[in-house]
Structure formats: structure tokens, C-alpha cells
Design a protein around this nucleic acid. Structure first.
Lengths: 151, 151
DNA sequence: ACGACAATATAGCCATTGCTATATTCTTGT
DNA sequence: ACAAGAATATAGCAATGGCTATATTGTCGT
């Protein structure tokens, strides 16, 4: 009853181990970049809408405290997504703009797809916020072509 | 150029603030329970397949180190999802079994739905692992009814 | 029965992402 | 021009989820 009590005899629910390891690894990876994408996407939206992205606005939109935002902005600056001047709003670098554009497009596709399935706009918005970060290129294409088929 | 440079004049990309706050809040919430669901679901699968769930197997499947699993199991035990005897495998409580069943069903629906869209089984498996935790009841229903329409 | 090895437990470290409290700087109205 | 208020910066704390190294306990074969 130690190493392999019931080896591969009935092979019920368990999927291939290596595939599952890879899935979890990739999920942990997505989790790491998730917040960065949310920030950059939101900053791009705030700039597009109001001309600037201030910490208080970011904090308010994300529902977190301002120092939380300040800390994250340092990280985003260190990673080259934004530029910040002390006591001023932040601006996206070229790299930041690229990431924002990609995130925004993906977000939009996911949300539209959910709506096309008949899901209510509010639920679609909430679910898309979580789902968008875990959608691979292949799945995104499938969503897109499904949308094209409908309209 | 300070409080509201371009108030609600062209109202471009930005969605309603309260809705967005709620979305992010809910996403952070899902993130908190995500790992718990993964563990409980995996433990259920291991038990169903081999009769027991050992730390080494869980660690191997998740792709993390054994002490990481040990720490998480303490948390799961504290929250009443599992029962553990020292130096023995873990077992699900009634509460744990319920959560596992729900998670497994949701996971299965999401993965089947992705496959039905024509996505490759490998990608569907990987994406489902991340997506499943962010799918609301309403979206799950939509996935289900879409699957029913196809088969 | 007991030694070797496998599995689990524990200690202590690090990074991340949240928070509150407080200091500093900017902006604005009079 | 300057005081008051708004925004940003910084310090320090907690919880979570990883890790390595090592001690302890179980189990199995001979």
C-alpha cells in the first residue's frame, strides 16, 4: 500500500501527470503577470479618458489603498512599463502601451464572447476580468472566430 | 488639469467605476480560493484513483515542493476541508467532498466547452485550469446549455 | 527485528500584495 | 504669497505561497 497500491489498473479520474504539472505551472505563471496587466490596462484607459493616470484614481478603480498602488507602480517602472516623475501622474512607455493594447484587445474579445453567449453584461464584465488572464492565443482565436460567425 | 480635465465629455474607454471596483474585488476573492479548490479537487482525484492522497503525490502533481503542500494542508485542515493524521495521507471531510465535487464539475464543463469550440485538448486542459476559478454560476449555465445544444 | 530508505514535520528564509499611519510635496483659493 | 487641503512618498506590519535544509517517523526487506 505504499508506492503504487492500484497502479494503472482502472485509471479513473486522474489525467496524465506531466500535462497536469504543466497546467499548474502555467497557471501560476499567469497569476504572476495578471496584476501587471490589470494595472497597465487601467492606466491606458485612464490616460485615454482623462489625459492622466493618478494614483488616487488607480487606487479607487482597483479598490485598493493608495500606498498599494504606489508600490506596484515602482515595480511597473522598474520593469519598464511606465515612467513616473515624483509627485506626478504616470505615463506608459512604448512597452507599456503594447502590453496595454494586447490586454485590452483580449479583454474585449473575452467580454464580447461571453455576451454573445447570452450572459448578462454585468456578469460578463466581472467574469471577463478574471478569465482574460488565462486565455491562450489558441482559445482567443476560437473566441474570435465564434464571434465572427455570429455577426 | 487637476481634478477633472475632461469630465464626462467624450466618455471613451472607461466603464462605470463602481462596476469595475466590484469586478476587481471579486477577482481578488476568486484568487484567494483558487488554490484551495485546486488542492481539494486534486485530493479527491487522487483518492478516487489510488485510495489515498499523499503529500508527495500532491506535490508532484502540482509541481511544488513537499513542505509547500504540508503548509497548505494545515490550512485546509484548519478550514475543515480535510482531516489529517500525523505521518499519514489526508482525507476529505464532508465539506471537502462537496467543494471537490463542485470544482470538478465546473472544471469539466469548462474544459468540455473549450473542446467543443474546437480548441485542442491540451490547450483546453491548460486554459480550463486557470479559467474554471473565475466562471460565475451564470456563465457556467451558459456553457452547459451551449454544450447541450451541440450534443 | 532492525537498518535503510521513504514520507512527513518543522524551522527559517524570501517575494508578493495587501494594509495603516505618517511625512512630504504640490496646488489652489483668497 | 501663503495656508489649507489634496496627492504622493515612505515606513512598517500581516498574510499568503513559494523555497531549502534538516529532523522525525513509518515501512519494508532481509
Amino acid at each position: 500500500m505504499s508506492i503504487k497500491p492500484t497502479p494503472e489498473t482502472f485509471q479513473g479520474v486522474l489525467v496524465d501527470a506531466d500535462t497536469q504539472i504543466e497546467s499548474f505551472r502555467q497557471t501560476r505563471n499567469s497569476r504572476r503577470t495578471e496584476l501587471v496587466e490589470d494595472y497597465v490596462e487601467l492606466i491606458a484607459d485612464l490616460i485615454a479618458d482623462g489625459g492622466e493616470a493618478r494614483q488616487v484614481d488607480i487606487a479607487h478603480r482597483l479598490g485598493v489603498a493608495q500606498p498599494t498602488v504606489a508600490k506596484m507602480l515602482k515595480r511597473l517602472a522598474a520593469e519598464g512599463f511606465i515612467q513616473q516623475k515624483p509627485y506626478r501622474g504616470v505615463f506608459l512607455t512604448a512597452r507599456g502601451n503594447e502590453l496595454a493594447a494586447r490586454s485590452r484587445e483580449r479583454h474585449h474579445i473575452v467580454e464580447s464572447f461571453l455576451c454573445a453567449l447570452g450572459i448578462s453584461p454585468e456578469t460578463a464584465r466581472i467574469d471577463a476580468e478574471g478569465i482574460e488572464h488565462y486565455v491562450s492565443a489558441e482559445t482567443l482565436e476560437a473566441f474570435k472566430s465564434h464571434l465572427a460567425k455570429l455577426g
